[in-house]
Design a protein around this nucleic acid. Sequence first.
RNA 1: GGGCGAUUAGCUCAGCUGGUUAGAGCGCUACAUUCACAUUGUAGAGGUCAUAGGUUCAAGUCCUAUAUCGCCCACCA
Length: 925
Amino acid sequence: MIDEIPKQYNPKETEDKWYKAWEDNNLFSAKPNPQKKPFTIVIPPPNVTGILHMGHALNNTIQDILIRYQRMKGKEALWMPGTDHAGIATQNVVEKAIAKEGLKRQDLGRQNFIERVWVWKEQYGSTIIRQLKKLGASCDWQRERFTMDEEYSKAVVEVFVRLYEKNLIYRGSYIINWCPRCQTALSDEEAPHKELQGNLYYLKYPLKDNPDEYVIVATTRPETMLGDTAVAVNPKDKRYKELIGKTLILPLVNREIKIIADTLVDLKFGTGAVKVTPAHDPNDYAMGKKHKLEFINVMRANGTLNQNAGEYSGMDRFEAREVILEDLKEKGLLEKIEPHNLSAGHCYRCHTIIEPYLSKQWFVKMKPLAKPALEAVKKGKIKFYPTRWAKVYLNWMENIQDWCISRQIWWGHRLPVYYCRECSEQNTKNLTPNTKDGVIVARTKPDKCPYCGSIDIYQDEDVLDTWFSSWLWPFATFYWPETNGQSPPLRGQVSGTVPSEDLKYFYPTSTLVTAPEIIFFWVARMIMAGLEFMKEIPFKDVYIHGTVRDVEGKKMSKSLGNIIDPLEIINEYGTDALRFSLISITAQGQDVFLSKERFEQGRNFANKIWNASRFILMNLEQGQSPSGTVPVLTDLCVFFKKEGLSLVNRWILSRFYSTLREVEKNLENYQFNEAANTLYGFFWHEFCDWYLEIIKPDIKSVHNQVVMYKILEKFLRVLHPFMPFISEEIWQRLIEQGQSPSGTVPVKTSIMIQLWPHIQENIIDHKAEKTMQEALEIITSIRNMRLELDIPPQAQNIEVKISTSSKSKKAALEALSGQIKNLSRLNKLEILDEYRRGLGEFTSVLKDAHITIFLSGVIDIEKHKEKINQKIQRTESEINLKEKMLSDKNFLQRAPSEIVEIEREKLKNLKDEAQKLKGVKDGLR
RNA sequence: GGGCGAUUAGCUCAGCUGGUUAGAGCGCUACAUUCACAUUGUAGAGGUCAUAGGUUCAAGUCCUAUAUCGCCCACCA
């Protein structure tokens, strides 16, 4: 049977097999259980158009670690999965697809187009879900949600109506961010500013009274001059004082515009005179309102100029810019062009430069929602990890602007807004002013107008911002607002669970794991929505992880071609390797710089675990201990009372529990890399490199059998959240083999539902750890000496004497002498309590021990002397430092006495060591 | 313009609340293959902790500047 275990771990043979087993046995599902505390994570829903990238891999690995850990800790752990309909992104993808057939969405019409999107969604929308499964994500898939599910959409409508009724949603004409390519309004967050290399154009606007005189204005977007309706100067500006109130002739259009005074104008910028285009700039818009200027829109939705642009009508905005500059230049009205760096908003979906555009949109009033959300973080009800993100959050929240939520696209939640044609006509005629412009906001389409009774009613064409549904994710996924238990059945039919109970039980959720880019879009808004609609925070902790970058620090993106595909890594190295490598290099909240080679570490670790386990399985007695008195799996505590354990076993057990404690602490503090590295170091460098090597010759002893088995078994459980597949594979083999005939042992079940090992404080033995540490140092020194003295590795006729004046150390060394001989490949070892120098020997000095090696062959005495000399020098310089320190009155007075004691002790040891070294040196003649 | 982060070994990075000799992975050097594992083992080399001040008995760690790189936010037309 053992022979069947291959020498190399093959992830492909285990991963799909175990994932299927977990799913088939419903191990991911969670439901309210009054016996247990809940632990809930809602997944940041990936876009349906998404394909798994490293960011997802990192994000979801972290969540899976948390969920698996808490599940093993005995919590009812729910990881709620789902996808986001991603309005603009998805619409763009499908538009591209139909473009291949030579079609535009307008050719299909709204209804048909949306049907196409649904078809697309059914076909490709589960790609990302399948990929998350490859990653080992233990989501409760029976609960999978989609932001356009029927029930979810009800929540969206409900929220819109409630906010409208509270006067927190309004409609109005404002300058918004317009993407001429997507042809929709965007929120401020969706139009991030990027630096652009542009120009500052100085244009001359002639005075009406005196066409030979000009006011020169500076602009970065000269094409908007066609919509200018004023020129503004600062009232304090002496240069223009005389001109305020005068009239200018707007070139090319020959419109008369006034010079107005406004403090908004910066005296130092440009010429101090600014052209005012109220329909195309937010500042100008404000001035336009204030000074009652005319609003002239010169652009169409697609970014071409409209009929107000006269002869430039039909040109693209950037094409028009060039032509207009040409024309101005011809008329001598272009003063100069200066290079100028500016920043402009870019569409976050298609990267087109945003046009500030006057249009009628729907907005959410944010200040009232922000207030409690600010408090929640300020009072520490919600904590950010790392804490610095709280500042970012607070800063944004304090300066929050109203949220533009209407989008002029087709894919999304249509606004629950209806218009009565009758009323709006009446209203334009100003006959019935109390009909709210015929606007009806309702949960379902009304049969007739509540104002006038007309049945001529139509729904608003626009859809809502995707984030207007995502911000409800922590509770809408539990079928809020249904609360009467009569809600729609869960997908996959989990019987006995009623959604309202779920919401009560699992909300507020525990931890949200996400990336910094999404704090404003999603995290902040979820907090506002949770507090507004649930009257409670949506989550307690927010863990913000870093961005995955390439080795040069660039964000990984398709267009840069610097992507490392997680699926390729899974294919090549295995999922566990991917997860472990990612986690081990991700310091809390720091960005991750990745190259493919990084994943070798995880693969190698998996292989190490595999082979160590293979070794243990090969050497593990079946079922019962050889003596028949000690069942292999008897609880350690009971066992220890009966039998005294060797130092080695006490040491490794203590090390294991110390490690476990460290890992737990790290996980509770969201220090995943620390946890992973602690585990790695323990298993590889302590358990494998030392422990297994030490016990190898005596591996069949009862103690060694029990301890080796117990540590592997417990280690696998601790490893499981990090490397779920390999831990399960080995666990299954181990449990089967280790099972005792008495049947008192854990039944053969999945590792993922086992309990996390309990820290047995009484087994942590610092003294044993220290003694062992020193013994290991001695072995290392002997090995080192062999190399230094060029003793061939095969040579075994080596004699060593270890002399120490410490009685306890002597006892420990005596107990370990067999192992020391073995690991240092010695033929004879003596432990003495006093060092006596003799001829033909070579001695190394440790803190309180001499190691003397006897050789009859040829050796390089000079080389050895040199080494000793170096060591003496190093020790003496250290002694100097310490002496200085210990003669410093300030130090003695102010440092805590323990520290002083430690330093004194250290100095004593150093002096001792120097003494011994000198003795050894003298012994070399 | 405001804010945040980074600067530690050849490379990529850890180092939590100041306190023994600053760590890891990769790479490098030497040696090792009847050994669970060469995706390995043993041993080793390699660091003025960006710079300058300061606080402290004590600074990689705290404070203040400076430099370089990166990110986020902002209505300089």
